[in-house]
């Protein structure tokens, strides 16, 4: 059986390299037959695509898509540098 660390690395590479996602900042953890995705993306569609690519890359694992969608509709803080 492939060691869980290698499975996680393979899934992470797929998320980065697959044309549908190209997402580099996602954390992938494997525990037994469960795979967990964590991180932040800017849209719900990107989150779904990441789950899809992960499921294809590790078809034997149960994928838990725990990625957060961050809404960034408003401007942030103002900082005065002096």
């Amino acid at each position: 059986m492939e060691a869980p660390q290698y499975v996680a690395a393979r899934v992470q590479a797929a998320l980065a390299e697959d044309r549908r996602t190209h997402e580099l900042g996602i954390r992938v953890d494997v525990r037994g037959d469960q795979l967990f995705l964590r991180g932040q993306v800017s849209g719900a569609e990107q989150r779904e695509r990441l789950g899809e690519v992960a499921r294809e890359a590790a078809p034997d694992l149960h994928v838990h898509n725990e990625i957060n969608v961050v809404e960034v509709g408003r401007p942030g803080e103002v900082e005065h540098l002096d």
Binding site: G25, S42, V70, V72, G76, E77, V78, E79, H80, L81
Partner: peptide, 21 residues
């Protein structure tokens, strides 16, 4: 020299504003 990482997920906002006197 002040450095600001303005990556959108870091800011958690559409943009930050820095004021130089």
């Amino acid at each position: 020299i002040r450095v600001r990482n303005v990556a959108l997920p870091v800011l958690g906002a559409a943009y930050a504003v820095y004021c130089l006197a």
